[in-house]
Design a protein around this nucleic acid. Sequence first.
DNA 1: TAAATAAAATGAACTAGATTAAGAAGTAAC
DNA 2: GTTACTTCTTAATCTAGTTCATTTTATTTA
Lengths: 195, 195
Amino acid sequence: MVDYSPLLENINRYVSLTGEEATELTNIVSTSKVKRKQFIIQPGFVCQNRSYIVKGAFRVFYIGNDGKEHTVSIGVEDWFVTDFYSYINQVPALNYAEALEDSVIFQMNYNDIEPLCKKIHAISEYFRLTTEKAFAFSRRRVISSISKTAEERYEEYLASYPHIVQRIPQYVLASYLGISPEFLSKIRKRKASKS
Amino acid sequence: MVDYSPLLENINRYVSLTGEEATELTNIVSTSKVKRKQFIIQPGFVCQNRSYIVKGAFRVFYIGNDGKEHTVSIGVEDWFVTDFYSYINQVPALNYAEALEDSVIFQMNYNDIEPLCKKIHAISEYFRLTTEKAFAFSRRRVISSISKTAEERYEEYLASYPHIVQRIPQYVLASYLGISPEFLSKIRKRKASKS
DNA sequence: TAAATAAAATGAACTAGATTAAGAAGTAAC
DNA sequence: GTTACTTCTTAATCTAGTTCATTTTATTTA
């Protein structure tokens, strides 16, 4: 018997589901264990799922024309991992999603979720509200990346997600901040010597 | 008598509203004329509205610690203008939204929209689907800004929005792409001499 | 139509951050 | 515990893009 409470509590922060609605939702959830370094999304394949992280950590990244990895998002417990563009348009993904640790996820398929959103108003509202939040957040990141220096972005991330910084390799953080690992190393050294 | 058809057609691309639902929606819409250079959002004030552009062009920008303007979004007819973070959290905005031309907008207030989303399932779905799309788009922009050169981002914008490039001042585009106006000028010169 | 203002172009000097290459340190695998 | 593999650090060199200062060209306003 799977314990869906982390997901249901997340949902409950935005809307209230009846018992029956909650059951309809958990009926479409499937649980997966994912080993470190394993991919759950790969370029060329359509991203079929919204994946809720029960335990572990993931990153979404893509490989640019320059042949380098660029990390689009990093997620830990109680976050979702998706290649959103691929998911909503149901077209092949451009990104990888990789487990950074041995992880457990709840997966919900596009073909199950969409009808459920049409059917159950509260679930539609849940995804509306959470996506609005994610969108507002994403805009902030755009602002950061066009208006702040590498060091400022690093400070900002450190202040916002101190617990995540501990968990992820430095080259992942660098590729998330949009800088080279060497330069992040330099920033860290600079900071360390200051304090 | 105001003609709401542009907005209703936009909605119709995502969901279908009954006549009554459409009326409930248009009942909360108010129309405004906005002169060029006029602000509809300003830092310190809560962004109360989702504004649909009937005619004209807008940009959302903010002034960084460096004292420079950074353009967060540019919109023309059939787009929405909002400081999303301010709007969904109902906290004071950090951004300006400025009319780039004499414009006409449909404004819908947060305090009217939220109850309507709770009440009318199709309207909730409309905002869910459009925000999902906006979010996917925003993520792509993040990828661009962390992984592409200034010139590549310029080319990309030019290819995607050739009609908008004609309409907006160059310094606005530069601040959207995250580069200095001088450098954009240089890129353009470089391109012109090539072809 | 002139005068005033805003926007764009040009070029020289500068800097944040990339690149390259080599070594050090940590982790995993046998 | 030794070999191999991955991650992190350091330093020298290089470049995309900034800054600053000046001139040219558009656009407003009167």
